[in-house]
């Protein structure tokens, strides 16, 4: 190996660094970048999974823009985001803030809040689906009927179905966000609080002037993370509406479910890929905007 012997120590170090890096780089290229590029290419083609791929140009995107179901689904996806993210952010912060002060059974309480996050989304969605059933099977409607209030058609309604599906999704994500918030709260130096106490500042000022500003990186992380989660919502919706996926009348259908249906029920891979590219762009734009807005000056 005369070539290797002639290298300087620094060059040898670089060569070795690349040799070790090659494994993850190759992995990423094959597992992530190649399929992504392929999906973008398919979005400009017609393909039914079995036959040949034929070029379609912008046909799939034109179809998308003209498809009323797509716009309905687009709106639903943003409703999941706009309702879900703030609610889960506020709830998880309040719980984490209070939990941080509790000493009694702290570990048990934290575990209880984290439990839903570890539960399978499928099992959880089915349990909630049964909660929402009309009398005589549904828990909520049975309670309503007992106090003499008329039933609510939670899932069989174009206006209540989306919030009903969203509720367990918010609940399931809370545990994770609470843990992150608690870690963030613990990371704030105690000296700030001590200084505030010496100055005799009230709790509200402490919260708004010390805690929240210093939690900014945590908040950014949670907002970005949960936004992506709600934009990609699928398993809760699919399992709570399996009889009529995304129904009734597409009122709960998110983009990912539409992609799934187009690809694996109708085998229209090109159209499904075009929807995927749109989803990718939405995720990218939303994440960039949030990072920009929440970045500290």
């Amino acid at each position: 190996m005369p070539f290797y012997r002639n290298l300087s120590i620094r060059q040898k170090q670089i060569a070795w660094a690349w040799a070790f890096l090659a494994v993850p780089v190759l992995f990423y290229v094959i597992i992530r970048f190649y399929p992504t590029g392929n999906a973008i290419m398919i979005s400009f083609q017609n393909w039914n999974l079995l036959g040949d791929r034929t070029w379609a140009g912008l046909e799939n995107y034109q179809k998308l823009v003209a498809d009323p179901v797509f716009w309905k689904v687009f709106k639903n996806t943003f409703l999941y985001l706009i309702i879900g993210t703030p609610i889960s952010l506020v709830l998880s912060f309040i719980i984490a803030y209070q939990l941080d002060k509790v000493r009694f059974m702290h570990g048990t309480l934290r575990m209880l809040y984290f439990l839903p996050f570890m539960t399978s989304a499928v099992a959880m969605a089915w349990v909630w689906r049964w909660f929402y059933q009309p009398v005589p099977t549904g828990l909520f409607n049975n309670l309503l009927a007992q106090v003499g209030i008329s039933q609510i058609e939670f899932l069989n309604s174009t206006s209540y179905a989306l919030p009903s599906v969203l509720a367990p999704a918010v609940w399931a994500g809370l545990g994770f966000q609470i843990i992150i918030f608690m870690a963030g709260l613990r990371a704030i130096p105690v000296s700030y609080y001590e200084a505030a106490r010496i100055d005799g500042v009230g709790w509200w000022t402490v919260l708004t002037q010390i805690t929240i500003p210093l939690l900014r990186p945590t908040i950014v992380f949670i907002v970005v993370f949960s936004s992506i989660g709600f934009l990609r919502i699928f398993d809760h919706v699919y399992n709570m509406t399996t009889n009529n996926p995304g129904g009734p009348l597409n009122s709960t259908k998110p983009l990912v479910l539409m992609i799934y249906g187009t690809a694996f029920d109708d085998f229209d891979m090109g159209y499904a890929a075009a929807q995927t590219v749109v989803l990718f762009l939405i995720l990218l734009i939303v994440s960039l905007i949030q990072l920009r807005l929440l970045r500290s000056e």
Partner: peptide, 20 residues
């Protein structure tokens, strides 16, 4: 032509009269 799509059509037909 596509049973699941055709079933969906009838499901939606009843849902429109029922819910809307």
């Amino acid at each position: 032509a596509n049973e699941s799509a055709q079933r969906q059509v009838l499901m939606d037909m009843v849902a429109r009269t029922d819910i809307q």
